[in-house]
């Protein structure tokens, strides 16, 4: 592999990193809102979100990416490949994150809530000061796990022509006729991204364990 091949690989890795990064960031926050709305059990909204979560979790990422990319123009939306990819990844990861947040909500102790209300906190202050800090820590291991699934699933955006880390290996081997070196190099780069997350996850788990005592 020559330097231009390495340049392409770096470009692909960067594309994977930022497309996944944006989807993860939006997906974690949006997942929290979806979970909040579900916990509130507002009629209709509850059913709609439940259906969305079941659908998004059951649909393969490749299908979702294609669906967004092909239907957006028919709805008059002019979006490029990257945006379509980010929307699809976000829709997917939000659904999984919402379930992680929701289980943290449901397992949260009612005693702490009563202590907060009894002392004069409004439900909002209770949520922000007592509940959110704790469910963030207890949800982190699950959220980080989902982040690594998302990164590993992100090559799905290649079907609509986004040149990410997986796709770039095809391009290189098309020129060099040696598929193995770029694939190994790409695999190593995925491992770097994932091990960063795994390291984060260990930190989070250590904190979560301390809270659980």
């Amino acid at each position: 592999m020559d330097s231009s091949a390495w340049g392409l690989l770096a470009y692909g890795a960067w594309t994977t990193a930022w497309i996944s990064g944006i989807s993860i960031a939006i997906g974690v926050i949006l997942g929290l809102f979806v979970a909040l709305l579900r916990v509130a059990r507002i009629p209709v909204v509850h059913q709609v979100l439940g259906t969305y979560i079941s659908l998004a979790r059951a649909t393969p990422l490749v299908t979702l990416v294609l669906f967004i990319f092909l239907t957006a123009p028919t709805m008059g939306l002019d979006i490029n490949r990257n945006v379509a990819g980010i929307i699809a990844l976000t829709l997917n990861t939000t659904a999984f994150n919402a379930e992680i947040w929701r289980s943290a909500f449901n397992n949260f102790s009612n005693e702490q809530r009563e202590a907060a209300l009894a002392i004069g906190m409004t439900p909002w202050v209770y949520f922000r000061r007592i509940m959110l800090p704790q469910i963030t820590i207890t949800s982190l291991p699950g959220l980080v796990n989902e982040m690594s699934f998302l990164i590993k699933g992100s090559p799905a955006v290649a079907v609509i022509g986004v040149v990410d880390l997986a796709r770039v290996t095809n391009r290189i081997s098309a020129v060099t006729y040696e598929p193995l070196p770029p694939i190994l190099a790409a695999a190593a780069m995925y491992m770097v991204l994932i091990s960063l997350l795994v390291w984060l996850q260990r930190l989070a788990e250590r904190k979560a364990n301390r809270l659980a005592v």
Binding site: E111, Q112, E114, A115, A116, L117, A118, I119, G120, M121, T122, V125, I130, P133, Q134, I137, L211, V213
Partner: peptide, 22 residues
């Protein structure tokens, strides 16, 4: 909000302590 400000005038101590662990 009204309820919270009424409750702030009462202190409660529970059998199970109910401290905030974080």
């Amino acid at each position: 909000r009204e309820l919270a400000s009424m409750r702030a005038r009462l202190g409660m101590v529970f059998q199970g302590f109910n401290l905030w662990p974080h």
